[in-house]
């Protein structure tokens, strides 16, 4: 029985270990969490409702489709391992989910990944509260976050260099520094050239060459924030337009899962690869949108390694893609 105001989460994970770890993380948000061990009990739990969040693995993804049909306001978090993500990426992108966390901790016996656990807690708490913005939600307390503003496109490269210098001082390995540089480069490019629209909603700079300098109007200034907490180096880039909807983001990201001559836009303006390249540079990619008001894209890069299985093939780094949208109550709600 739910207490008044208590949120309800159903965890459907096939592996008992994953189920236990996931339920433990979800319970940290104060939610009422149910994690049934069998398919029959899962179906029963889905029918019992009401549910706020459903956390599923790939094996239970079909149940998510049914659940969202029954309850369109249900938030779905997919928690799966990297091999499943790499094999089924395109199908995964079709799921009615708000967040996807690909992490070794759900697949590796005896591995517990505090970074992935914290991200799951943050994800579920953001879905509950609607308080979605802020790099700090992903960083340990005490992390110093630096903030810089872009008022003209030429400033972006200086911010890339500055972020990389800070990251190098934070102990980021050389190979990750190039990923960080690409992340900041692409996010700033999107925010400067693609986000701004005029009063009629028409893009102001999207069709211009990225080599052509752009001076932004005050309402177009871009905010870049970055810092390290010793485990993660995080970057957030915000614009004041809130135009990056989930379908658009997924469409851009998924086109690079397949190799063909449609990958790269040959028209003027951007090449259409920026979002994917940014996503591909990080372990966690978070898109926060208040439609028409603000977009904040966050990229997190691990400074250390994700836990590996005790033996056998490495599962690689963890990865996530989370999309959060500010919900406004409809009339009468």
């Amino acid at each position: 029985m739910l207490k008044p105001g208590e949120k309800s989460v159903l965890v459907l994970q096939s592996s008992p270990k994953s189920r236990r770890l996931t339920a433990r993380a979800v319970a940290a948000t104060g939610a009422h969490c149910v994690a049934p061990p069998t398919g029959e009990e899962s179906t029963q739990a889905l029918a019992n409702g009401p549910l706020d969040v459903l956390v599923v693995d790939w094996e239970n993804a079909a149940l998510a489709q049914q659940a969202v049909k029954l309850n369109p306001r249900l938030e779905v978090v997919l928690l799966t391992d990297r091999p499943a993500f790499e094999r089924y990426a395109e199908d995964i992108m079709d799921l009615p989910m708000s967040s996807m966390i690909v992490s070794s901790f759900v697949a590796v016996p005896d591995a517990n990944d505090p970074v992935a656990t914290r991200e799951l807690v943050t994800t579920v708490a953001k879905l509950f509260t609607g308080d979605i913005f802020g790099l700090e939600k992903y960083m340990g307390w005490g992390a110093a976050i630096r903030e810089q503003e872009i008022r003209a496109s030429q400033q972006a490269e200086g911010i890339v260099q500055s972020a990389c210098e800070d990251a190098a001082r934070s102990g980021m390995p050389e190979r990750e520094l190039s990923s960080l540089g690409l992340l900041v480069d692409e996010l700033c490019t999107n925010a400067v050239w693609d986000a701004p629209v005029d009063a009629e909603g028409q893009p102001r700079y999207a069709d211009k060459s990225r080599a052509q300098p752009v001076a932004l109007a005050p309402n177009e200034y871009v905010t870049v924030r970055y810092g390290s907490d010793g485990n993660l180096f995080g970057v957030s880039v915000s614009d004041n337009f809130g135009r990056l909807d989930q379908d658009l983001a997924v469409r851009y990201i998924r086109k690079c899962f397949r190799h063909n001559d449609q990958q790269v836009s040959k028209s003027a303006g951007g090449a259409g690869l920026g979002l994917y390249m940014a996503f591909n540079s990080v372990s966690s990619f978070v898109i926060n949108v208040d439609p028409g008001v603000r977009t904040e894209v966050i990229g997190l890069i691990r400074l250390g390694r994700a836990p590996k299985p005790p033996a056998g093939e490495s599962l690689g780094t963890s990865r996530s893609l989370c999309y959060f949208r500010t919900k406004r109550p409809k009339k009468g709600e």
Binding site: L182, T189, V264, S265, K266, L273, G274
Partner: peptide, 13 residues
């Protein structure tokens, strides 16, 4: 080559 960004990919192609 320290970095190649999205528009750089198009230039390279």
């Amino acid at each position: 080559v320290a970095r190649i960004n999205s528009t750089g990919v198009r230039e390279w192609l």
